[in-house]
Amino acid sequence: MKKVISTTNAPAAIGPYSQAIEANGFVFASGQIPVNPATGEVAEGIEGQAEQVMKNMKNLLEAAGTSMENVVKTTVFIQSMDDFATINGIYSKYFEKDCPARSCVEVAKLPKGVLLEMEAIAVK
């Protein structure tokens, strides 16, 4: 059995997918991009974009009844590996200890021309 998770505190889905799905005690969060859900604007620069992605993920997980502390796996897609250290610095503010498993890959292009996107799996 699955439950669709939706919140106005994270960007709305821009295609045929759900913001997140809860199934069997896990929350599978779709990729979050650095769009401010209140304004629809994309944050500027890699620091601003990384911060907005993390805020969006935090808000989505809280809407699902879980938290960043319960994330077990993330996948981060970045436009340039040159931004890896900057993204890690912001990422580490949200995952201070017992960090989740993670994959990070450089990709050619992301939705809306953003610099990064992150998806996550969390336990309830």
Rank of each mutant, 00 (worst) to 15 (best):
Met1His: 13
Val4Glu: 15
Thr8Gly: 08
Asn9Lys: 12
Pro11Leu: 04
Ala12Ser: 10
Ala12Lys: 12
Ile14Gln: 09
Tyr17Gly: 04
Tyr17Arg: 07
Ser18Glu: 15
Ser18Tyr: 13
Gln19Pro: 02
Ile21Thr: 15
Glu22Tyr: 12
Gly25Cys: 07
Phe26His: 15
Phe26Ile: 12
Ser30His: 01
Ile33Asn: 00
Asn36Phe: 01
Ala38Phe: 03
Gly40Phe: 00
Glu44Arg: 10
Gly45Ala: 07
Ile46Ser: 03
Glu47Ile: 14
Gly48Leu: 08
Glu51Trp: 01
Glu51Cys: 00
Met54Gly: 06
Asn56Ala: 06
Asn56Lys: 05
Lys58Glu: 15
Leu60Gln: 06
Leu61Val: 10
Ala63Thr: 06
Ala63Val: 08
Ala64Pro: 05
Ala64Gly: 07
Ala64Val: 10
Gly65Thr: 13
Gly65Arg: 11
Ser67Pro: 04
Ser67Leu: 10
Glu69Cys: 06
Asn70Thr: 10
Thr75Lys: 15
Thr75Arg: 14
Val76Tyr: 01
Ile78Phe: 02
Met81Tyr: 06
Asp83Tyr: 13
Ala85Gly: 08
Thr86Lys: 14
Ile87Trp: 05
Gly89Lys: 15
Lys93Ala: 07
Lys93Val: 06
Glu96Lys: 15
Asp98Cys: 06
Asp98Pro: 05
Cys99Trp: 06
Pro100Trp: 03
Ala101Trp: 05
Ala101Glu: 12
Ser103Cys: 02
Ser103Lys: 08
Ser103Asn: 08
Cys104Gly: 06
Lys109Asp: 10
Leu110Asn: 00
Met118Cys: 09
Lys124Gln: 10
Lys124Thr: 07
